[in-house]
Amino acid sequence: MVILYVVLGVVALVGLSVVVMYNRFVRQRVLIDSSWGGIDVELTRRHDLIPNLVSTVQGYATHEREVLTALTAAREQATAHQSDAPAARQQFEEQVGQTLGTVLARAEAYPELKASANFLDLQHQLTDTENRIAAARRFYNLNVGAYNTRVRTFPSNVVAGMFSFGLRDIFEVSDVTVRQNPEVSL
């Protein structure tokens, strides 16, 4: 009889452990989806600011048309892929960021544009949005990292396999020039 109680206790303990691990996977998956939503909100905000920036710069620098056209095209491509998974969407968002940086850098050559209150406000909003995107990306990647670690480690990897909890993609910068330290010459 004692053996039966011990066996039932072990089975109950294993069952409770599986339930706890399963629930934690579900919570982490929801947190990842929620943190991706934070990135998506900021990327959408950046997409919404770009037409205003383009029209403001066009008024001052009409011969920068090819850069502005490239920015508009990059925005349209990124917007067309908004429903894609993070890994698939990453390249389009990086293109928007790179082209946006080019537009802002070229705007430095136009003193009257730099003095425009509208341009300065848009530049501030875009800088703030880029900072928010970076923060949201860090939060998302931390959550994905914790989740992926649980998917790969024992004993939670057994539960992950039983209930099809697979690895999630991180959302990282793949452009190597962004990761390099800038050269500063004085």
Rank of each mutant, 00 (worst) to 15 (best):
I133S: 07
N141M: 06
E172G: 08
E130T: 09
A117I: 05
G97M: 10
F165V: 00
N131K: 10
A146L: 09
E94A: 06
L120R: 15
F163M: 00
A136N: 12
E183K: 14
R137N: 00
L167E: 14
L113Q: 01
Q95L: 13
N181V: 08
V103G: 05
M162E: 00
A135N: 14
A109H: 13
Q125F: 06
N157L: 03
K114R: 15
F154K: 06
V173I: 13
Y140C: 00
T149C: 07
V173A: 09
I170N: 11
G161I: 07
V144N: 02
R138S: 12
S116F: 05
V151Q: 04
F165M: 01
A134V: 12
E108I: 04
V158D: 03
N131Y: 08
G101C: 10
D121W: 05
D169A: 11
T129D: 06
G161D: 07
Y110W: 10
P111D: 02
G97C: 11
R138L: 09
E108P: 03
R150W: 05
T102A: 14
T127G: 15
K114C: 03
Q98C: 06
P155E: 01
A135Y: 14
A160D: 04
A146C: 02
P155R: 03
R137L: 02
R132I: 04
D128G: 13
N118K: 12
T149Q: 15
E183I: 13
V96M: 11
V178G: 03
E130R: 10
K114D: 00
R138I: 05
R137E: 01
F119T: 01
L100C: 06
K114P: 02
V144I: 03
R150K: 11
T177S: 14
Q95A: 15
T129R: 09
N148H: 03
A135R: 15
R137F: 02
Q180M: 05
P182G: 02
G166L: 12
G166Q: 14
R132P: 06
I133H: 11
F163D: 00
Q95C: 06
E183V: 15
N131W: 08
V158Y: 13
A160H: 06
M162L: 15
L122N: 00
A105T: 11
R106M: 07
E94H: 05
S174V: 13
A117V: 10
E172N: 10
D175W: 09
L126N: 02
T149G: 15
D128N: 13
Y110D: 01
R168W: 04
D169I: 02
R106K: 12
L142S: 13
D128P: 04
A115L: 08
V173F: 09
T102R: 15
F163Y: 06
Q123S: 13
P111Q: 05
V176K: 11
L100H: 07
P155F: 03
V158A: 07
A135H: 14
G161Q: 12
L186W: 14
N181I: 04
M162P: 01
L100Y: 09
A146S: 08
F139P: 05
S185E: 09
E183T: 15
E112K: 14
R168E: 07
R150C: 01
A134S: 15
N181Y: 03
R106F: 08
F163H: 01
A117C: 07
